[in-house]
């Protein structure tokens, strides 16, 4: 078991899957000769060559479409889009093509692509580099959407995504690429479905995904110091949602906080609250609370940006609110 960085975990998954199956290729902007904006494919161009580590022009919709077309003929492309903001340009091929081809062909053609992209705010990247947009993909039937919170899932979910026959969207985060965590030395697959209880507790359930799990964990530590036992649930997959694990946790704690880095409207939190209402309304002792971004494009100014994006103290405040401590 070694402790490695998130980007190294992604790189290792690429390396193993490229070695395992010649039909696996990687494609994206600057991923080859330049080694990848976040180093996630560094060294692979030298190892596997230009035919399998494909540097693409800045043409998100069409290079994603080329990956989808190749997948229809048996290949397993891992498509990197440098920022989820740029994935908006590829929505036609991702949502109108990849997500629908299996269904509209009556199950006769599938599109086993993986699209990886960082979706989150980093440091003062301003409005056009800071969108999160997970909610857009999670609302699309025909896709799988996963949000690895650390190196183990970043590694093991990418490996599963490459093997899986469905199109899988992996949403990473600019602020997590250097985060470190333990990953087994032996080959490991992590399932693409299922929420995970990351910290067991009894008084309140803090629900996060992607980077916001870390906000929940930090808030849970502060709550523990106050004698409050918080359970932290990492959704891991936004599509499909693991309704059972959410229900079981809320039935135990009777209180829920949902933390998302995105804006609230028609968002992950709205969806999770709907799940809670449908699954275990009568288990609730208090109304669930959403922690989310301000309803504005992300500002450049450092202080404004900080004010727009939720932090661990916001999660803590929300937990205290559902607990009736404020």
């Amino acid at each position: 078991m070694a402790e490695i960085a998130y980007w190294e975990a992604i790189r290792r998954a690429h390396d193993e899957e490229l070695a395992h199956d010649r039909m696996v290729i990687a494609m994206g902007e600057d991923i080859g000769v330049a080694g990848g904006t976040y180093k996630a494919t560094s060294g692979l161009y030298q190892k596997y060559g230009a035919e399998r580590i494909i540097d693409t022009p800045i043409s998100e919709n069409s290079y994603t479409g080329i990956g989808i077309g190749a997948s229809m003929a048996g290949m397993r492309p891992i498509i990197e889009i440098m920022s989820i903001n740029f994935a908006l340009l590829a929505l036609d091929t991702l949502i109108n093509a990849a997500a629908k081809i299996r269904y509209m062909s009556g199950g006769r053609v599938s599109c086993p692509i993986v699209m990886r992209t960082p979706g989150g705010t980093a440091h003062q990247l301003a409005a056009q580099h800071s969108a999160r947009l997970a909610r857009m993909f999670m609302s699309t039937p025909g896709l799988r959407v996963v949000t690895p919170r650390g190196p183990l899932d970043a590694y093991g979910m990418l490996k599963s995504a490459v093997r899986c026959n469905d199109p899988v969207i992996i949403i990473e985060h600019e602020s997590m690429y250097n985060m470190r965590g333990e990953v087994p030395d032996t080959e490991t697959f992590r399932p693409l479905e299922g929420a995970e209880i990351v910290r067991v507790g009894t008084d309140v359930t803090l629900i996060g995904y992607n980077y916001s799990v870390h906000l929940c964990l930090a808030a849970a530590a502060k709550l523990a110091a106050m004698g409050i036992s918080a359970e932290v649930l990492d959704l891991r997959a936004l599509r499909p949602i693991d309704r059972d694990t959410i229900r079981r946790s809320v039935e135990k704690t009777h209180k829920a906080v949902i933390a998302e880095e995105d804006e609230a409207t028609v968002g992950v939190g709205s969806e999770i609250i709907s799940v809670i209402m449908e699954e275990c309304f009568f288990a609730l002792d208090a109304q669930p609370v959403r922690v989310h971004a301000a309803d504005v494009p992300v500002p450049y100014n450092h202080e404004l940006e900080k004010a727009a994006i939720p932090n661990a103290d916001d999660v803590l405040a929300a937990a205290l609110k559902v607990l009736g401590r404020v």
Binding site: P141, G150, S160, C164, N165, D166, G181, P191, G194
Partner: peptide
């Protein structure tokens, strides 16, 4: 609902997830 996703997915890639495999 048939044909939306692979109707016979391999549990090795899909799950279920064994709880208690905690990591950071």
């Amino acid at each position: 609902n048939k044909y939306c996703l692979d109707d016979q997915p391999d549990p090795r890639w899909i799950g279920p997830l064994a709880q208690g495999e905690q990591h950071g």
